[in-house]
């Protein structure tokens, strides 16, 4: 009986942690448990959620993508100048997402076919894409206007924005792709043991390439979400986002060594980070202290995960 309980605890450890954090804030802050708080938290999330989905795929495949924050900025910069040049919002959005995908493609080609370490390649892209974002916007904020903000207007009956709902749909689809498709199996196999994958007929290079492209496209989409949220494009947008995404993935139990992770759990990791940020702000914790707490939570998550891995036999 107790082993059943333990197994259940193991499986839902991340979710239980989220609920515990929520409960703590509900007790500590009077107005925390309110519709307004939740819709505020959730509606901030689309960009981080999308980037985390891409990051989780890359991490499970045994790579890492440090460029996502800069690619987000590049994508939103492309959207900004496209709108400024007179293109319609959908065309501009497509251009932004394409820019993200191309950045991912470059990462993938260099990382898999030239066999350069993905860490270094995406570190280079982190600088290059950020630089490109500054260049094409002349380091200025580009105003887009209210047309794009429809994405982030809460729909009256739910309090949720179209941006958040589409991010949620992408989470569900990505989870399904990872757990229930041939491609998902290939990603896990390559991340677990690339040599055994090759001997089993899976092309590790191509798999990594696809996954890095996917991460680029999702960072591009995140750029669109970010532009909609701000109503303008800021070349500084998304700086440090790659670390938040890695943190969310890791809190969700993704292994940095590849092979292990879950999109749903990574999404709960996103929620944990967001709830912490908002909850701590509500109880009046200072910004520096918030960062200390977030750091502790990340490490704690890995400790818990290690503990879980050791007992899951």
């Amino acid at each position: 009986m107790s082993s059943m309980l333990l197994r259940w605890l193991n499986q839902y450890l991340v979710l239980i942690s989220l609920l515990l954090i929520l409960a703590t804030f509900a007790l500590a802050a009077e107005n925390f448990l309110s519709f307004a708080t939740f819709s505020a938290i959730l509606n901030q999330l689309p960009a981080l959620t999308l980037v985390t989905v891409g990051m989780t795929f890359v991490l499970i495949c045994g790579g890492i993508d440090l460029s996502v924050g800069s690619v987000l900025a590049l994508s939103s910069a492309v959207i900004g100048i496209s709108v400024a040049a007179g293109f319609s919002i959908p065309v501009a959005a497509l251009a932004g997402v394409t820019a993200g995908g191309l950045a991912g493609l470059v990462n993938g080609l260099l990382g898999s076919y030239l066999r350069l370490p993905v860490f270094i390649v995406t570190l280079g892209m982190l600088e290059a894409a950020r630089g490109a974002a500054y260049l094409i916007t002349d380091s200025q904020t580009v105003y887009i206007g209210s047309a794009i903000q429809g994405l982030v207007q809460p729909m009256s009956w739910l309090g949720l924005t179209p941006a958040f709902i589409s991010a949620l749909v992408i989470v569900v689809v990505a989870h399904f792709v990872l757990t229930s498709t041939v491609f998902g199996r290939h990603v896990i196999a390559v991340g677990t043991n690339p040599e055994a994958a090759r001997i089993s007929g899976i092309d590790p290079k191509r798999t990594l390439l696809v996954v890095l492209c996917l991460s680029g496209v999702l960072a591009g989409l995140a750029g669109l979400m970010n532009a909609a949220y701000l109503g303008s494009t800021d070349p500084n947008a998304g700086s440090g986002l790659e670390l938040a995404a890695i943190a969310a993935a890791v809190i969700g139990g993704t292994s940095l060594m590849g092979g292990r992770g879950s999109i749903f759990s990574a999404f709960i990791g996103v929620l944990i980070i967001a709830v912490l940020q908002n909850g701590l702000a509500q109880i009046g914790v200072s910004e520096p202290f918030k960062r200390v707490v977030t750091g502790v939570v990340i490490v704690l998550a890995v400790v818990l995960d290690r503990w879980r891995a050791d007992r899951s036999f």
Partner: peptide
């Protein structure tokens, strides 16, 4: 180092070289 996918299930390790037979149009059938 070259044979098994450690940490993954017996089923995963068995079917990995031929997923077509347990899938319909890329969707796995558990």
């Amino acid at each position: 180092s070259h044979g098994i996918f450690a940490g993954l299930a017996v089923a995963f390790n068995t079917t990995i070289a031929e997923l077509g037979r347990i899938a319909t149009r890329h969707l796995l059938k558990p």
